[in-house]
């Protein structure tokens, strides 16, 4: 993202909208710190600049991956879709992607409010792969891995910063304790945060085994959750 210096009048209205505090006013003009900017285009989309000073510049690889992951309107080249993840469990009554006896995990690096580099993404991905986790082959981030069996990413993207990267996949339920332990350990080695999703197919009796395991091991579970209610039909 660039700000056309001739059009900018330095009113500073755009400054608070930047999700990474990349916009500052210098000599009565707004400028963008290229290192901080994740190319999300929020500053442009909110249409706050009456002078239309924001311009999306052509981005070359690997910087272009910032836009791919941070601008929700941009299509991911690997999936051809907007959005950074898969439908995960949202259509599971139809797709059967997750089954009883399995645990699905979504590790949402950078969210909320912190952003992430791919270096941190790779650290978490390698830990998951080494703990018996299988990455979802339809997930955009799996598609860019150089080797999904070990969780490695192309070296040239490791320093690129984006709003969020989601690692998605599953493992047999018995691996859940070791995966949570590994996530606890790696969470101390990264310079960002992640939000953690745990996916479970409900049992006939209404129980949710993966969450019972997490609670028993002392991991706090948030009070809100989401569920499919089977209206897409075949279960």
């Amino acid at each position: 993202m660039i700000i056309n210096q001739e059009k900018c009048h330095g009113c500073a209205l755009c400054v608070p909208y930047c999700v990474t505090n990349a916009i500052t006013i210098v000599n009565k003009k707004a400028i963008i710190d290229r290192e901080l900017c994740v190319e999300c285009s929020v500053c442009m989309q909110v249409d706050v600049c009456k002078n239309h000073a924001f311009e999306e510049d052509e981005l070359e690889w690997p910087r272009s991956i910032r836009r791919t992951y941070s601008n929700v309107m941009s299509k991911h080249p690997q999936t051809g879709m907007t959005g950074r993840g898969t439908p995960e469990m949202k259509t599971n009554e139809l797709t059967g992607k997750y089954k009883r006896g399995e645990v699905g995990l979504g590790v949402e690096l950078g969210r909320p409010d912190v952003c992430t580099t791919f270096r941190d993404v790779e650290k978490v991905a390698k830990m998951l792969a080494a703990s018996g986790f299988t990455f979802d082959h339809e997930a955009p981030t799996t598609m860019i891995m150089t080797d999904p069996t070990v969780g490695s990413l192309p070296p040239e993207i490791l320093n690129e910063r984006v709003i969020c990267v989601i690692l998605e996949g599953k493992a047999p339920t018995e691996k859940l304790p070791v995966l949570l332990e590994g996530l606890k350990k790696v969470s101390k080695e990264i310079d960002t945060v992640f939000s953690l999703d745990v996916i479970t197919v409900e049992e006939e009796d209404g129980s949710v085994p993966n969450i019972e395991i997490a609670r028993r091991l002392g991991y706090p579970v948030r009070p809100n959750a989401k569920t499919t209610v089977g209206l897409g039909r075949p279960a």
């Binding site: 606890k184 945060v193 992640f194 999703d197 409900e202 706090p220 948030r222 089977g230």
Partner: peptide
């Protein structure tokens, strides 16, 4: 309706 597949949050981890 019967819940089919749940997604729970285990909160925010890391820094």
């Amino acid at each position: 309706l019967k819940p089919h597949t749940w997604n729970h949050s285990l909160g925010i981890w890391g820094k």
